[in-house]
Amino acid sequence: MTGRQLIGASLRPGMHALLPERLRRMHIGKLLRRLGSIFWMTLGYTFIFSPIIVVAGSSFDGSSLDLRGNSAFLNFPPENFTFEWYTRISSSLYQALWISFSMASIAAACGIVLGVPAALALIRGTFPGRIILGTLFRAPLQIPFIVIGLAFLQAYYEVGALIGLQLRATFAGLVIGHVFVATPYVVGSVGAVLQRFNVSLEEAALSLGASRWRTFKRVTLPIIMPGVLAGGIYAFLVSFGDVTISLFLTGPNINPLPVEIFFALDREFDPTIPAMATIVIVGSGLLLYVIQRLVGIDILLRGGGNG
């Protein structure tokens, strides 16, 4: 029996009726490959999604409610289904969520403002040294985040000592650190889009008498828009989910949510954390849905961001 034999051929005639037509016509090797593929995909996707499902599920676990959160840990699958943890989420966690959201939005916006002109100049310009400059613009993604965090912390000390500008443990300081890592994502994804489309479109607009600004607004911008959005979304996500950089730049009352979760896991567990994390997961899902409805999800799949 070889892999190329049809499944139907290896069966006794009477058993044919038991198998659907499609399966009977399949090679045995192909069937094994199919089963192997399904097995591997199931394994991989289960592995990827298990933590997310478990966090969402355990946020409804009521088995340790009577312990009043004292060293309580949550179980999965949830027992004694409850919404109690959602009502107990402290206002400081909501504030942390708001700080994360506003910080990531501002960082992504600044990343776009800095990254789009940089990408345009780096791809469309003809000046020497563009490759080195491109590498420098992408450099922040090559530096470990802990080194970025520490370097900004030290630089803020220095700036404070030199000109008295206090950036350490301020919201502005936090945002600047995040703009630093947000910009390369926009430069990368806008650059990738620009490289794909032909400069002659812009030249045509210019030669037909459009002004530079009009050419940019009516020709270049619509073309690079998917890249801008993809870069902006990735920048937002990296900033929104970051712990390591924020850890060194935050201070009291301006902890972003991931830092609060980090502290809760590193020091004392807070059973409302899974509930808050579930709210964030649902929020991310909604964001993805909005992206899908407005521009289509595939802008994120086509080489957007640098990972």
Binding site: P51, I52, V55, D242, V243, P258, I261, L265, A277, V280
Partner: peptide, 9 residues
């Protein structure tokens, strides 16, 4: 989904 949330899971 942020890495801390996955780590929590």
């Amino acid at each position: 989904v942020s890495i801390v949330i996955k780590v929590l899971g």
